[in-house]
């Protein structure tokens, strides 16, 4: 019962920044080890390759590359483990993964790119293309 063990696993805070960074790398490797099984059970092969998914996940890590506070790093790792646990427990459904890792948050907002691109339109027309309520 590897998952049951993992779910109960807690650790004290890192003693140093090095240890915190080490934990991050460890966690990334752990995620990578679980990737094939996640791809499998969420049927993701038809929308993304394992390499692409891995780089999407590493992008999530890099998003926080500027964090230097070890307590914050520990917390982010903990949250990442929690997220992984949800994936493994099937507490998530396919569209959760699709929206977070496959298309990305931005891709889910309709016409967002269209509104952002500047064709020399007036503010009115930009808003018009986006929504009726703007």
């Amino acid at each position: 019962m590897a998952t049951a063990v993992r779910a109960t696993m807690t650790r004290g805070s890192s003693a140093s920044l090095e240890e915190a960074k080490h934990r991050v790398v460890d966690f990334f490797r752990e995620v990578c080890r679980y990737l094939p099984s996640i791809m499998d059970r969420y049927n993701l092969y038809e929308v993304i390759t394992p390499a692409q998914l891995r780089s999407q996940i590493s992008a999530q890590f890099r998003k926080h590359s500027d964090v230097t506070n070890r307590k914050v790093i520990d917390l982010l790792v903990f949250k990442g483990q929690e997220e992984l646990q949800y994936c493994l427990d099937h507490a998530k459904q396919r569209h959760h993964l699709l929206s977070t890792y496959v298309v990305g948050r931005e891709g889910m907002v309709q016409h967002n790119k269209l509104g952002v691109l500047d064709h020399g339109e007036s503010e009115f027309l930009k808003n018009f293309y986006q929504s009726n309520s703007l």
């Binding site: 339109e121 007036s122 503010e123 009115f124 027309l125 018009f128 293309y129 009726n132």
Partner: peptide, 23 residues
Amino acid sequence: DARDDWKIIRALSEVVGVQLPYD
């Protein structure tokens, strides 16, 4: 994806190139 009617005509006028003066 429907819009208020006057907005549609206002938007169209801009795309056509005879922009109406109300926003």
